[in-house]
C-alpha cells in the first residue's frame, strides 16, 4: 500500500516536473462543481473528497462549488464549457447525465468527450416490494396483471432503471401504470410502503435503511454479487441482461485537458481512493465506494452509454 502510494506520488511528481505551466500547482484553486444544491448525495461525495484531493495535489486549494439549476444541467454544462486547465472539474452521474442525450434532448455536454478523472461510487439497483406484499419472487411479479409502479419523474434515473427492468422482464407488454412524480427516491419508497403501488426500484444506498428496518423487501438486484440475504441478483434469477444497471458518481473535467495535467489529476485521484483514512471516512458518510481509475472510467462510461442507448425506445415518458 505504502509503496503504491509512493510510486503514485512519484508519478505525480514526474508529471509535475515534466508538464508545462498548465499543471495544477499547489498555489492553484481547483473547484469541483456540484450541479445540485448543498446537502444531497453529490454534495456529500464532493465535500468528503475535496480535502483529501487537496492533500494529494500537494496542497492546492480544492473547493466545492454548488451550481444547481435545470435538473443538474446548468452545472454540468458549465463544467463542460470551462477552460480545460484542470482547475474546473465536476461530478457526474450515470445514467442521470446520459439520459437527456439518449432521450433526444439538446444538452450542452457529451459525457463521452469529458476528461474523466476517476469513479468514486457505484450503486446497484434493487427491485423492491412492500414487506407485506404477496409478491415473493420475480415470477410472482411477472404474473401480476394490473401493475402499478411507484417512481420519481420523467428524466430521473430511478424511472429509467424501472423502465429498463420492465422491458427486460417482459412487463412492458402488460402496460403497467407508472405512478411517477414522487419528489425523490425516498418519497417513492414511502409511497410503496403505503401501498400506492406494488413495486419500485432504488439504488442500494437509498434502500438499505428500509430493507434493514423491515419496511420493504428486495426481489432482485443488479450487479454481479448480491448484498442482501435472500435477494438474488438479476443474473441468478435468470435475467443477466440487467447486471450492468447501476448508478455511478464520477469526477471529470471539460474535454481537452492536456495529458500531463490529466495524468496528474488522475494519479492524485488514485492517491485519495487508496487512502485508508479517506475510505473509512467515505464509508462513515454513507458512500458506496467503488473506485475506478480515470482511463477505465472513460471506457466504462462509453460502454454504459451504449447499454442505456440500447433501451432508448423503452425510456420514453410513460405518462
Amino acid at each position: 500500500m505504502k509503496i503504491k502510494t509512493a510510486l503514485l506520488s512519484a508519478v505525480a511528481g514526474i508529471a509535475l516536473m515534466s508538464g508545462a505551466q498548465a499543471d495544477v500547482d499547489p498555489s492553484d484553486t481547483v473547484s469541483i462543481v456540484v450541479p445540485y444544491g448543498p446537502g444531497g448525495g453529490f454534495d456529500r461525495a464532493v465535500r468528503g473528497f475535496a480535502p483529501y484531493f487537496s492533500e494529494a495535489l500537494g496542497g492546492a486549494n480544492v473547493i466545492t462549488e454548488n451550481i444547481p439549476g435545470a435538473g443538474g444541467q446548468r452545472g454540468s454544462t458549465e463544467v463542460s464549457r470551462s477552460e480545460p486547465d484542470g482547475l474546473t472539474l465536476g461530478i457526474f452521474n450515470l445514467p442521470g447525465f446520459a439520459l437527456p442525450a439518449i432521450l433526444g434532448e439538446e444538452v450542452g455536454y457529451d459525457l463521452r468527450e469529458l476528461s474523466w478523472i476517476g469513479r468514486l461510487e457505484s450503486d446497484d439497483y434493487v427491485l423492491i416490494v412492500a414487506a407485506d406484499s404477496d409478491i415473493q419472487t420475480l415470477d410472482d411479479l411477472i404474473a401480476v396483471d394490473d401493475l402499478i409502479i411507484t417512481s420519481t419523474g420523467y428524466g430521473s434515473t430511478v424511472l429509467a432503471a424501472l423502465q429498463i427492468t420492465a422491458s427486460e422482464l417482459g412487463l412492458a407488454q402488460k402496460d403497467p401504470i407508472y405512478l411517477s412524480g414522487y419528489g425523490g427516491t425516498t418519497d417513492a419508497i414511502v409511497g410503496l410502503i403505503r401501498g400506492d403501488g406494488q413495486v419500485s426500484m432504488a439504488p442500494v444506498s437509498s434502500v438499505t435503511p428500509y430493507i434493514e428496518s423491515g419496511d420493504v423487501r428486495g426481489l432482485a438486484m443488479s450487479g454481479s454479487q448480491s448484498l442482501f440475504e435472500d435477494v438474488p441478483t438479476f443474473a441468478e434469477a435468470g435475467y443477466p441482461g440487467l447486471t450492468p444497471l447501476n448508478l455511478q458518481r464520477s469526477i471529470a473535467g471539460p474535454p481537452g485537458i492536456d495529458d500531463a495535467t490529466l495524468t496528474q489529476l488522475r494519479s492524485a485521484f488514485m492517491d485519495v481512493v487508496q487512502n485508508e483514512e479517506y475510505l473509512e471516512y467515505a464509508k462513515s458518510i454513507g458512500m458506496n465506494m467503488s473506485p475506478m481509475n480515470g482511463a477505465d472510467t472513460a471506457a466504462d462510461i462509453s460502454s454504459s452509454f451504449e447499454f442505456y442507448e440500447r433501451f432508448s425506445t423503452s425510456l420514453q415518458n410513460p405518462n
Partner: peptide, 19 residues
Amino acid sequence: MALFLGVLVLHGMQPGPLL
C-alpha cells in the same frame, strides 16, 4: 429539513426509519 438531512448525512447518520 431537506438541508438538515444533508447535515445528518454529512455526519454519518443515514436518514431513514432506523435513525
